[in-house]
Design a binder for these strands. Structure first.
Lengths: 111, 111
DNA sequence: TTTTATAATCGTAAATCGACGATAAACGAA
DNA sequence: TTCGTTTATCGTCGATTTACGATTATAAAA
């Protein structure tokens, strides 16, 4: 049932969309998993694991950093990346809320 | 540590990316919520709620349908949309796995 | 200082996205 | 059949994404 037209999207909707967009590429999902498993840390190691070039990996890392999911600290000529605790906690929260809010429906369309 | 370069991304990574990409726009997140809350069902009702045009809503519905998150059945001149149980169950599974696999790290970068 | 290793950025190209208005298609009702 | 309602599609446009090689920092090592 329609109430009235919304002016904007909610902050939560936009925030979740930013997170989801960051997860919206297999390379970025793979990077997050490699970082948590500590199978890779430095950008060059990620490049060795992934089927994409160095510049593309760097670009994806930038995207993940912009979304707040990853942080990197300079370590000599290298950069050590890891999951950003605060940002990832927020992402988990938003995704968890979504899963809680949208259970698998038992009934189909009911118009 | 690097083992050896991967040829492709895994199926799970790609599948999750498809789901995440579908969630990567506030309009689509809003649509999913409206559908589960049964605050809207028919396309026209969604249009009345959302700050975007009819053609754009239809476009987003198509995207959600392609991702397998939503299904629609024709009801006279209208189309009744609802969450696709199987597709959404799969999406929940993949997102849940991600949350389980990637806990919030306690330690920061450790290179 | 010069070299070497690493990562970020630049420039570019192709593809996709997101939005809209306009039009077409589908269907029930008159 | 014709009309009115609803939804999908078309065409368009600008912006964004994804990819790459080449180049430019950056910093340690020689």
């Amino acid at each position: 049932m329609a109430t009235h037209k919304r002016e904007h999207f909610t902050t939560a909707e936009q925030e979740l969309a930013v997170i989801a967009k960051a997860l919206g590429h297999p390379a970025r999902v793979a990077i997050l998993r490699l970082l948590t498993q500590r199978r890779a840390c430095v950008c060059g190691e990620l490049v060795l694991e992934l089927p994409i070039s160095q510049s593309t990996v760097s670009q994806h890392l930038k995207g993940l950093k912009t979304a707040g999911l990853v942080q990197g600290e300079v370590d000599g000529p290298r950069v050590c990346y890891c999951i950003d605790p605060a940002g990832w906690a927020r992402a988990r929260q938003l995704l968890g809320d979504l899963l809680a809010e949208l259970p698998v429906p038992t009934t189909g369309c009911a118009c």
